[in-house]
Simulated assay, not measured.
Amino acid sequence: MPLSQSQLRALVGEALRSDADLDAFCSDHFPDVYRRFSDGMQRVRKVTLLLDHADPARLTELLPKPISEGQASPPAIPSASGCIKVLFLAANPPSTMRLGLGRELREIEERIRAVKHRDTVTFVSRWAVRPDDLQQALLEEQPHVLHFGGHGTQDDRIVLEESGGGVAFVDKDALADLIGILTDNLQLVVLNACYSEPLADALTQHVACAVGMHQPIGDLAATEFAASFYRALGFGRTVDEAFRLGCSALRLHRIPEHQIPRLKFKAGVDAASLRLVPPV
């Protein structure tokens, strides 16, 4: 028996808990509905448009399955002390378009220094990262958050450096395999690189949450999103709230790329309640 509209509305609310999830779902699966959305539109109106214009059977099939009863989410705080380490990896081979990665890290660190819980967030950076450096850095640092700043490709790869300064590619499966082995403390991966959404999806087999980019993203947008995202985490906000505040910052600064970042999470994880820094 088909579900009623009220039942479908409840199902959408359970499966797509954040506005970012709703926007990304409609953009990916129901683009005709997504094109009807406008800036500032209330969530309830967006859900109504989805229910009015989407095929109910297809909508039910495509919605992420809700968390099973009794299935545990990962711990809200990833370390006993409540402190987190962010490993910032940067790669920009000389032959590729220059990126403002130094500015990105500087903006993040400046905003973290201004937050309530600044002493609970530590940044460690590695530059001109080569494929082998990925293993070395993860083994040494065992971070709670892995941040990559650099280039991504349309065929689901990130761009690293070779020993001689050339270009080295790491594909989606290789990166997911590495993260699956070295999860340790890792809860969140941020891929601040063009076309990285499929990689973020793949990484949520192993980590609670991942952020990737749906399309190419400019330097200014990547920097502002990341700085605002980590600032919100430092204030004890949930991952979902931090993500939405990062996107909101782009709109506040009139940077027209606020729909490019995408938040992905592992089955059974509620990003709306996951905090990396404890609130006070």
Rank of each mutant, 00 (worst) to 15 (best):
R9D: 05
L11E: 08
V12C: 15
D19N: 15
D28C: 08
F30C: 04
V33I: 15
R35S: 15
R36S: 09
F37V: 09
S38F: 15
G40M: 09
G40Y: 09
R43L: 13
R43S: 14
R45F: 12
K46N: 02
V47I: 14
V47L: 08
L49G: 12
L51S: 11
A54S: 12
A57S: 05
L63Y: 09
K65I: 01
I67P: 03
S73R: 08
P78Y: 00
S79M: 00
A80M: 10
S81K: 02
G82W: 06
C83K: 12
K85A: 05
N92T: 05
N92I: 11
P93V: 07
P93L: 11
P94K: 07
S95Y: 05
T96Q: 04
M97W: 11
R98T: 04
R98M: 09
L99I: 05
G100S: 03
G100H: 00
L101A: 04
G102E: 08
E104R: 01
L105S: 10
V115C: 11
V115Y: 06
V115I: 11
K116S: 04
H117R: 12
R118N: 10
D119E: 15
T120K: 12
T120V: 07
F123K: 01
V124N: 15
S125R: 12
S125T: 07
R126T: 04
R126M: 08
W127A: 09
V129G: 02
R130N: 08
P131F: 14
A137N: 04
E141Y: 05
L146A: 01
F148H: 03
Q154W: 05
D155I: 07
D156W: 13
R157Q: 14
L160I: 03
E162S: 15
A168W: 14
A168M: 04
A174R: 14
G180H: 00
N185D: 11
L191H: 04
A193S: 09
S196N: 07
P198I: 11
A200G: 00
A202T: 00
T204Y: 07
H206S: 13
H214Q: 10
P216Q: 00
D219C: 07
A226M: 11
A226D: 01
S228E: 03
S228P: 03
R231D: 12
R231L: 14
D240N: 14
E241M: 11
A242S: 13
A242V: 06
R244F: 08
R244A: 06
R244S: 08
C247V: 05
A249P: 03
L250W: 05
L250Y: 08
H253I: 03
I255S: 15
P256S: 12
E257S: 07
Q259N: 05
Q259S: 09
P261L: 15
K266F: 03
A267C: 00
A267G: 11
G268E: 02
V269F: 06
A272Q: 08
R275K: 15
